[in-house]
Design a protein around this nucleic acid. Structure first.
Lengths: 129, 129
DNA sequence: TTCGTTGCAAACATTTTGCAGTTTC
DNA sequence: GAAACTGCAAAATGTTTGCAACGAA
């Protein structure tokens, strides 16, 4: 019900925005993407709700690119590519994440809760510039 | 010769500090670690030289933990564990990085220059708190 | 009226930069 | 003297927070 009341429209718009994109946006990018639909939305609201969603496990932080945090509504473990030319964060669906959690636990005693495999380099577009 | 002249003593101390630790320190941690040997070193100098070393490929940024960048003088691809309890960044020497660069290139067209495999969770100490 | 959500502006923390002073050659 | 490095303070940047106003129940 929450999603349909006016009170939660902005909160819901933020989550929907993230769920409907694969660009792994920053808070400011989300704010900009929502500007058309919600011209009066505040950046503070975006930050507040992103923090809330993250705490609830609805989204995750997948990278920090040039000091800016980038988010993803896909919380399944998957692989990312960060382009150092255009700062794009891409999904690499073709590559699968090795499941090494148990091996880590056994060899180091650390309890694994999450795993990120991230490549950096130049995306196709930026290679031809 | 550079390392022995007074002019480069601080710069060298910063690099040596990083090379002699496996704690993956932040700029502020480096600053603090050097305080005993160089009581007058400025945080700005640490930041400036870290940026320089990174650009020269002498060090790499391995993670951003709670918004703070962490550095490593080991630029070989290796695996890290970030503890969400104490913010420690640990090396997982036992686990090897899968070499998927070519597969990434072939399936996505992205040119891979670097790869990071990072686990998060609770380290041994923090599990028993 | 009580609770949760928001916008705004101020505060905050980390990082970067301008500039003057010092060292090296 | 020219070039490079540094400390200090100020600025810039991304993010968080306090507070008053608003909306829902």
């Amino acid at each position: 019900m929450e999603a349909h009341t006016k009170q939660f429209r902005k909160r819901n718009a933020i989550l929907t925005c993230l769920q409907g994109t694969d660009t792994h946006p920053s808070a400011e990018m989300v704010h900009e993407m929502l500007h058309h639909e919600h011209p009066d939305i505040s950046l503070a609201t975006v930050y507040r709700n992103l923090a809330l969603f993250k705490q609830q496990g609805l989204i995750q932080s997948v990278a920090t690119v040039r000091g800016i945090e980038r988010f993803d509504a896909n919380t399944e473990p998957h692989v990312h590519f960060i382009c150092t030319g255009c700062d794009a964060v891409l999904d690499l669906h073709q590559i699968s994440v090795p499941h090494l959690g148990e091996e880590v636990q056994q060899t180091s005693g650390c309890r694994v809760e999450n795993c990120q495999l991230t490549f950096t380099g130049l995306c196709g577009k930026c290679q031809s510039i």
